[in-house]
């Protein structure tokens, strides 16, 4: 016999249970909806595109005939542009984040800068395309080159990168900094030896995620001059280029259904790329979290 005050009150026990279960079911359904939508899309893509994937597809250039067409130029272009973007954006973003978190005086100006960065993160990418066109292609005279594209993508992902780097730096515990300061370290020494090593995994994760967004950008690159039909891989930053999303777009716009299949194949490759980048980010994050 359960003691009097431990027994469930009559009527409330089962009812509370039922409510809890209903809520759990609803949450499960919401998740299912998202997963289902994704699966439906994927199924379509996979059906159309899997058949197209072969070495020819991956190593061939775009061509007027679907049998010979391939994504080589696009893949190379994407790789080049991501590489350039990272090389430019990462140091700039890291430097900005360090400055804002560690050195900038807490004042109205800094707050203004901070607010503006947050705003910039929400600006539609096409706007960055317009800026890129005006500033890099025309004013700077860089023309329709990889460099223009990379610079455009840089300013596109910079706000997001800075914010996530700032978050990572901010998450370094105060006690660690204080201990370092207490031992007579200068601000730079504290940043270099304590803050950055500790924040680095977070910064890296943020960078990979920002890059994976950049990998999928199409509109700004169109404006800056990526072309749909290219028959060579770029050899330098001033060369003309194309990227994978653009190639996919180009194929989709053609009337022939064979090209649509090619587009589906391209989408699969792009998705695989994005998946790999995101997985890398997650693995990195988990590895450093466990190390702590």
């Amino acid at each position: 016999m359960i003691p009097h005050d431990l027994a469930a009150r009559p009527g409330t026990g089962p009812r509370r249970e039922a409510r809890g279960r209903r809520f759990a079911v609803l949450c499960g359904l919401a998740t299912a909806v998202g997963v289902l939508a994704l699966l439906v899309l994927l199924e379509d893509i996979l059906l159309d595109g899997l058949g197209v994937l072969d070495t020819q597809f991956l190593t061939g250039f775009a061509s007027r005939s679907p049998e010979r067409a391939g994504i080589r130029a696009a893949l190379a272009g994407s790789a080049w542009i991501l590489g350039l973007t990272v090389a430019i954006a990462f140091p700039v973003a890291l430097g900005a984040a360090i400055y804002l978190e560690e050195y900038a005086p807490r004042g109205r100006l800094t707050q203004l800068v901070q607010a503006n960065i947050a705003n910039l993160a929400g600006v539609p990418s096409i706007v960055y395309g317009i800026v890129g066109l005006t500033v890099f292609v025309r004013w700077a005279g860089l023309g329709r080159s990889l460099l223009s594209g990379a610079l455009t993508l840089t300013i596109l992902i910079l706000p997001v990168l800075v914010i996530s780097a700032q978050e990572a730096i901010r998450s370094v515990p105060r006690e660690l900094r204080e201990a370092a300061y207490g031992l007579g370290a200068t601000r730079w020494q504290v940043v270099r030896h304590q803050v950055l090593p500790r924040a680095f995994p977070g910064v890296l994760t943020g960078a990979i995620l920002a890059l994976s967004r950049a990998a999928g950008e199409t509109a700004p690159l169109i404006l800056v001059g990526a072309v749909g039909f290219i028959a060579f891989t770029p050899r330098g930053p001033m060369d003309e280029f194309t990227v994978l999303p653009l190639q996919i777009y180009d194929w989709i716009s053609r009337p022939q259904s064979e090209f649509h299949a090619l587009a589906a194949g391209g989408i699969i490759v792009l998705l695989a790329l994005l998946l790999a980048m995101n997985a890398a980010a997650i693995i990195l994050r988990n590895r450093y979290r466990d190390r702590r």
């Binding site: 370092a180 207490g182 500790r198």
Partner: peptide
């Protein structure tokens, strides 16, 4: 020098912790 309330060793080795101050 200062010792804090909650022990806050750096995420480094024992040697590097002790050597940090002299090194910087």
């Amino acid at each position: 020098g200062m010792v804090f309330q909650k022990p806050n060793p750096f995420p480094k080795s024992i040697y590097d912790n002790t050597a940090f101050g002299p090194r910087v």
